[in-house]
Amino acid sequence: MNNSRLLRVGQQSLSLIADMGHAGLFLWSVITSRIPWRRIVPLISEQLYRAGIMSLLITILAGFFIGMVVGLQGFHTLQKFSAEQALGKLLALSIVRELGPVIAALLFAGRAGSSLTAELGLMATTDQLSAMRMLGVNPLWRVVAPRFWGALIALPLLTLIFDVVAIYGGSLVGVDWLGVDRGAFWSGMQSVVEFGGDVMNGVLKSGVFAFLIVWISLYQGYFCEPNAKGMSIATTKTVVYGSLAVLAFDFILTALVMGGW
């Protein structure tokens, strides 16, 4: 009994390691695939539209509400210490360093990541990828690479937009509704937020998150079992693995940036 359980654990571990190796080889093939540049630029723009512009509305709405919530919660907490004038600092740092990159990435995994997996899964299920190979065109550069680069560019830009909208939402609640001094709000924010240390670190984080999400999404879609159940499992895995990867790497990157390690 114990032996069979041990055997199962061993088999599952081996299968996990093999899957990771497979996913790594897939990523390597995508990055190193010979891309005809005259064709790839319009294809990347199309993917930027589909992954970026199509996720814009949900990102803006989420950013706006999260900014307002942080403004409201921050105001009431700071007020207990008569420090409500520091709301601008609190809002900007929490949004730019953490909430912006992480929440934009989680939304991106749910909106664009699942859509990439479903799209590739359907193409695999209906033999479109095989047909492309038979027509002498490598689907890795024609289908996968544009989606990879498009998503990699889109998420950092979405994160910046999320940051701006969230700060605006926070200022609406803090300054216009709850009466924090406008000058103290904006000058406090300007004095603590560093462009390189905070804003660009957030963008760098979102670049890493984009890489993880798009890698997981494309791998799950490209190699999904070619039936309805397989596609459903692949889409779920994309959202679950993508979100967990974002949260785990957020901790690692934060620890690295803050000098914890």
């Binding site: 209906t126 033999d127 479109q128 095989s130 047909a131 038979m134």
Partner: peptide, 15 residues
């Protein structure tokens, strides 16, 4: 593959 063609059962057109 450029010298051969495969007509798939369901067509496999790009949707």
């Amino acid at each position: 593959r450029l010298k051969m063609g495969l007509l798939f059962q369901q067509g496999a057109l790009f949707s």
